[in-house]
Design a binder for these strands. Structure first.
Lengths: 231, 231
DNA sequence: CGCTGTCAAGAGCAGTGCTCTCGATTTAGC
DNA sequence: GCTAAATCGAGAGCACTGCTCTTGACAGCG
């Protein structure tokens, strides 16, 4: 469990964590674009230039927070998903868990699923933690398929051309799941985040807000849509 | 067409428009949060403090741009919608128009449908232009219903409780359209913007990107989903 | 003509990200 | 154990930002 060999290494690791924690507090309180290195350094009682020994730029600090946020959401979703036996229940529970996490961590949600921070270019290191939840949900479809509890959607066209190739890359994660289900899964994925973003950013005010019942209804319909049988 | 009576009034109206135009250029080039009053004033050859005679704050300038963006998208969608006879074709065409506008005006799209700018609170004046597109799409459903071309979705539960009340407020815009269709319409609305945001913000990279075929397929399925018959 | 309201300009405040230099301290190699 | 190298926090400074306040000039109206 010894993080580093020398005292300096340990101190560095600890301080790095403290910086991230202070930055996260600021993020939660003020939002991503108001996250200020100088304010973080003030909170830690150090001078602003010292921060640059730990994070080369503000964007790098943001990247660290982004990865942490993806991992936190991924861990939460996986935990909830494991609790359910039946794939459909797990799918619906994961959807509700994602919404719950987004509502209790709106700034972190915005950081990863909102519009990108100006001038910020996400590095490759974020895509692995970013794919935890989608992989989890695709996995649930595969599990349902194995159990024979996945219906192939009616009326949907069989993907062809470029779309068929794209679906094929996803299909590697879920052998046996029909292509028509996979395109619907991506639709469902976007639907989930569209609804959450609308709710969080006030686009539903005046109509479906508060959205608890509407969201629950939508998630049931979405589970039907991707072919998950009701238990 | 005379904007103001005195020369001063006319100059003021012109300058206000010039400020908005310069600000929009900056928005397109740099993004909303990098929009700088000082840079706008530099471009116009005036001093920064003079801008405050026209827009009391940066947020007020943003509000003006937001309203313009909503109106531009709304006008575009309405134009495309009018070109189509059949409600389903119009619905699908409007969806594609929204995506097209978003792709050609990503910063303006982000301004109105992305995560809110930090500390910015949208004033009431934005909600009327914001509702042009949803009202248009609900109207298409009502038109289809009148023509007897709207199928009531199977498998969907009839809304009850709070949800039923919420749907009732929407139903005033679309008399005759079944409640089950209206909840699906809101889902479709969120689906559309979820997909566009995913595409714009790189969440589809590695899977469905480029998204043209996928988007087209999704929109057809979505039209089915809300009960619009294929022509 | 003179008053009043409007205007652009400029200085200034408090804040930002980031760079560079400067001693002090710790680590690592011999 | 001693020295050279790496690392560290501190501080000054640059080029920005939104915004406020004051000042002096000008236009419009009675």
């Amino acid at each position: 469990m010894n993080a580093g060999r020398t005292a300096r290494d340990r101190a560095r690791a600890e301080l790095t964590q403290e910086i991230k924690d202070a930055a996260r507090r600021q993020l939660v309180a003020e939002g991503a674009e108001r996250l200020s290195l100088r304010a973080v350094s003030r909170e830690l009682g150090m001078v602003s230039s010292a921060l640059y020994r730990y994070f080369p730029s503000r964007d790098d600090l943001l990247t660290a927070l982004i990865i942490d946020a993806y991992d936190a959401l991924g861990a939460e979703a996986e935990k909830v998903g494991r609790r359910e036996q039946d794939p459909r229940s797990a799918w619906v529970a994961v959807c509700h868990a994602v919404r719950g996490w987004a509502r209790s961590h709106p700034q972190e949600y915005t950081l990863i699923y909102g519009s990108p921070v100006a001038g910020y270019k996400a590095p490759q290191t974020t895509i692995q933690p970013a794919s935890r939840v989608p992989i989890l949900m695709i996995g649930l479809l595969a599990k349902a398929e194995e159990a024979g509890a996945l219906a192939s959607p009616e009326g949907a066209r069989e993907p062809s051309g470029v779309l068929a190739e794209q679906v094929a890359t996803i299909a590697e994660l879920a052998p046996g799941v029909p292509a028509k289900v996979l395109t619907r899964a991506v639709m469902a994925w976007a639907q989930l985040f569209g609804l959450i973003s609308f709710e969080l950013y006030g686009q539903l005010v005046g109509t479906m807000d508060p959205a608890d019942e509407f969201f629950a209804d939508a998630m049931e319909q979405l589970a039907d849509f991707v072919g998950l049988h009701a238990a």
